[in-house]
Design a protein around this nucleic acid. Structure first.
Lengths: 335, 335
DNA sequence: TTGAAAGCGCTACCAG
DNA sequence: CTGGTAGCGCTTTCAA
């Protein structure tokens, strides 16, 4: 329509420069007037020649915390989809135990060595890791943090739960489950893990603000371990037989529920937890657990890869810096 | 690799026939051994020449029931996406009031006239409509029912809520909100609309089975009208001042909530509803409504179109006949 | 600054 | 029964 070649149109459409002002204006005018929108399929097919390589560095799923196994499923689904786009995904995983961050930094270096052009990572909350990610960003390798964000890391964006809001949701449920007030206990994973403390805070906040009739009387730590969880929950229920609610902040849901069962108080105590592990759903079905709050684990695997692809192919930058996953309230009846 | 042309490979890959047994086996063997998987992007691009035309026949959204407006948003999003695939979508809408089905049948004929190759429809529950859809199916035009299913219509599949389960979820919540029992009222839209009665049934079931301490003491109809809803809810709350719960089965959520507010009993009565209309969320935020159960309205718009496209391009048939949307429990804190 | 052409992976059609 | 080729809409490179 403009009497120019497709190459020239491509140049102005994608702001590649090297087009005379006049030609550019003429083309742009036509584009606007006919409402031309580029075809994304054609684009994707052409771009597939670039053979983009992405990395995904994740924590290993464990028995007490199979969350990351579910995330991995999302990674693999998206990997299969992006294969059609000429994208390969390099996966690596580190144990969540090694908390110096050294192992993780090594893995990052390895991935960079192998030529990744973008990285999705569940980072340790450690300055050294932040520093390393910042280096990547400066090298032009975009980074997306998943599941837990990292400050001063120069990451492109974060994909995951809003932990405070997650805790507030738990608090809201606990409040609704106590129309005449009550006393509840909290079992957290660790006071050192930010995600856990944020949930706990959100939970406390809401009860204080909106449900003052619900008193928090007990608190314990289970280190995300099912057996410790079983023990501390059992002790708590014994020491405070008046408890009417239990909030399990992080891992060890199964252990705590087993303790509730063992104490025979599942009909008197409202139990609320996070995530949708198989054993968690089992306890939900049994009626021991009353509600659990999911955080779109699978999407936490898939979305970061899509974001990196879009970014690298000039498709788009994420419209928000914080991409929060849904907080799915799951009870026995809507599982 | 097999020393044959791409055309021949295409024939065996897509079972188009006309290939000698021997050649086919040879090709298949290679396909299996190298784990060849066709590239969906290339496929989509090639198929885009077909210019597939789809129809989407929906109910008009109303003020008291803006649900279908949200569905329409999903339709339009998917329409934009499928435009890249060479697909055009013809949309039409009929008023939910005209319940003889005559108007809807006319619209269907019109769409067929215009050459649609597949149809998504929120059908009236009327045998004449079922008959018409069956005709389409026999003509080779696949039909997907949305939001409410229709028996004996020969539809490819159904996309929408599991209404009984939705009601059970409401019942489960109501039970959890009543740890010491209570008395609740139900306000339904119409005893003639299957979706409403199914929700109601599910609700009653769960309370009976799992929460016998919660008694259903009142019942009213609001015709999905906000003002009738306001009236009947007000009367109910006045007549049964002992009520501790209110279940709004369908439309008229806002009106009923206004009545709860007017009666000044929002702190004493647990109110549960369905869908996520703007006014519904407003009441949730205000604390008048305690929970509402969403049904992925947007997805109900988009998914049927994707299913029809996949089916028509030989991509795949839906793996299940009933594709149920999530039941999203929404409270003030996780909105 | 611009044009021409090859190519991404597939489908479809025509000819043999 | 099979091969050859054009074409889907785009990007990229080389040449002019």
């Amino acid at each position: 329509m403009a009497g120019v070649s497709r190459g020239t149109v491509d140049r102005v459409l994608n702001h590649r420069g090297g087009v005379s002002e006049e030609t550019a204006r003429k083309i742009q005018a036509i584009v606007d007037s006919v409402g031309y929108v580029p075809n994304s399929i054609g684009r994707t097919l052409a771009i597939s020649r670039k053979n983009i390589k992405l990395g995904y560095l994740i924590f290993q799923g464990t028995t007490a915390n199979p969350f990351f196994t579910e995330v991995l499923q999302g990674v693999e689904e998206k990997e299969a989809e992006l294969k059609n786009f000429g994208v390969t995904v390099l996966k690596a995983s580190s144990s969540i135990e090694d908390d110096t961050g050294a192992g993780q930094i090594e893995l990052i270096d390895q991935l960079v060595e192998e030529g990744i052009q973008g990285l999705a990572i569940t980072p340790f909350n450690h300055p050294a890791v932040a520093q390393k990610l910042k280096e990547l960003a400066e090298k032009g390798i975009p980074v997306v943090t998943v599941n837990s964000d990292l400050e001063h890391s120069g990451r492109l964006c974060y994909v995951g739960s809003d932990y405070r809001k997650a805790g507030q949701t738990a608090g809201g449920l606990m409040g609704l489950f106590h129309p005449h007030g009550g006393t509840v206990g909290i079992i957290s994973g660790s006071p050192l893990v930010v995600c856990h403390t944020e949930r706990e805070q959100g939970f406390r906040e809401i009860l204080q603000e909106r449900y003052p009739g619900v008193e928090i009387r007990a608190f314990a730590i289970n280190q995300d371990d099912d057996f410790i969880s079983y023990d501390v929950a059992g002790q708590m229920l014994k020491k405070y037989p008046e408890l009417t609610g239990l909030y399990i902040v992080a891992g060890g849901v199964y252990g705590a529920c087993r303790a509730v069962e063992a104490a025979g108080c599942q009909d008197r105590v409202a139990v609320i937890s996070h995530d949708e592990a198989k054993t968690t759903l089992e306890m939900l079905k049994k009626g021991v657990l009353n509600a659990t709050i999911g955080q779109e684990a699978v999407r936490q695997g898939s979305e970061p890869l899509q974001i990196l692809y879009d970014y690298l192919t000039g498709g788009s930058v994420p419209e928000r810096e914080m991409i929060y996953t849904r907080l799915d309230i799951c009870i026995r009846e809507n599982m």
